[in-house]
Simulated scan of single mutants.
Amino acid sequence: MDTRHIQYFMAVYEHLHFTKAAEALGISQPTLSQQIRVLEAELGMPLFDRIGKQVVATEAGKLLHFHGGRMLLAEQDAKIAIRELRSSARGTVRLGVLPSDLDFQLVPLFIHFHSEYPDIQLQAFSTIQILEEVLSNRVDIGIALRTPPDKRLVQIPLLSEPYHLLVHSGSVLADRPSITLRELEQLPIVMYPRGFLGRDLVEKVCREKGGFQLATVMETSTAISLLQLVRAGVGATIQPVSLLKQESMRRDIVAIPISDHAPMRHLELIYGSERYISEAHRQLTKWLIDFFSK
């Protein structure tokens, strides 16, 4: 049922006169009469009785007046909501981020986003399957490890950074200016479980460049818990130094560069190439690019 037909019907119902209704709509009276006949044929019932020059709404016409008014109101509400969404007044932004970056690095940016867009609901998801989440439209924007070019995606390179050995400030290694990859084999290490992107990236370099596998004394799935284990002296961890970007995270922890064959991570921002991106999405994208470029 075309809402244009509903608008024509509502005008006739209001005026109970085809000529006056046609003038109010800015169309000819024959055109209006034809459109009402089309609507009546679609519904299978007459909407008006024409008694001489008088027009009277039938029971079907009265029912359509009630429901048609609600239909036009719903259409108006939808248009207003979409206009508000286009102007970033409301809506939802879904962001997929690797666990290590979501734990604490991006929280200040989320707070800033809320202050600028208080009516936008920001949903941030921790996931290691960011590419799949973006392609399946379960998230709008993703921060992921760099992948080969994909026509389905807009891919914006972010930072590239080496992994460091993070140790407790009281460790015998704390004063070392650097450490070699092979030395990591002999250290008590705390890491993410296998299957996490960061763990698999480090393991690949250790295997291919050092000829060994990491021997972990403990594994946990969050960056915060890894840093807590380092502070407790349970072991060292191999992570991007950006985990220590916040001053509170640097307390009692020293980052030691790996002098040879340091694992590297290359991050990129991704979203669907055919997705509609609102102003709030674009602004969040800009802030994310700025954040990771610092």
Rank of each mutant, 00 (worst) to 15 (best):
D2V: 07
I6L: 12
I6Y: 06
F9H: 10
E14I: 00
H17W: 00
A21M: 08
A22Y: 05
E23K: 14
L25R: 08
I27T: 11
S28K: 12
Q29L: 01
T31Q: 12
L32D: 03
S33G: 09
Q34S: 14
Q34L: 14
Q34Y: 14
Q35C: 12
R37D: 07
L39G: 08
E42T: 15
L43W: 01
F48W: 06
R50C: 05
E59R: 13
E59Q: 14
G61T: 05
F66A: 13
G68P: 04
L72D: 09
L72H: 11
D77V: 15
E84K: 09
L85G: 07
R86H: 14
S88H: 08
A89S: 02
A89F: 04
R90L: 03
T92P: 03
L98T: 05
P99F: 03
F104S: 14
P108K: 08
I120G: 01
Q121G: 00
Q123R: 12
I128E: 15
E132W: 09
E133W: 05
E133V: 03
L135N: 03
N137C: 11
N137P: 00
R138Y: 05
R138S: 03
I143F: 06
I143M: 06
I143H: 05
A144Y: 02
A144V: 12
T147C: 10
T147S: 15
P149R: 11
K151D: 15
R152T: 06
L153Y: 05
P157C: 13
L158P: 08
S160M: 14
S160K: 15
H164I: 10
H168S: 15
S169C: 10
S169Y: 09
L173I: 05
S178E: 13
R182E: 15
E185N: 11
Q186Y: 07
I189F: 04
M191A: 14
L197D: 11
L197E: 12
L201F: 04
V202M: 06
R207V: 14
E208D: 14
E208N: 11
G210L: 09
G211T: 04
A215Y: 10
T220G: 02
T222V: 11
Q228P: 00
V230M: 04
V230G: 02
R231H: 01
I238W: 02
P240K: 13
V241G: 09
V241D: 07
V241W: 06
L244M: 12
S248G: 06
M249T: 13
I253A: 03
I256A: 03
S259M: 02
D260L: 01
R265A: 12
H266G: 01
L267Q: 06
E268L: 04
L269S: 06
I270M: 11
Y271K: 01
G272F: 02
S273T: 05
S273V: 03
E274W: 02
Y276K: 10
E279M: 11
A280C: 01
R282I: 00
R282A: 09
F291G: 08
K294N: 12
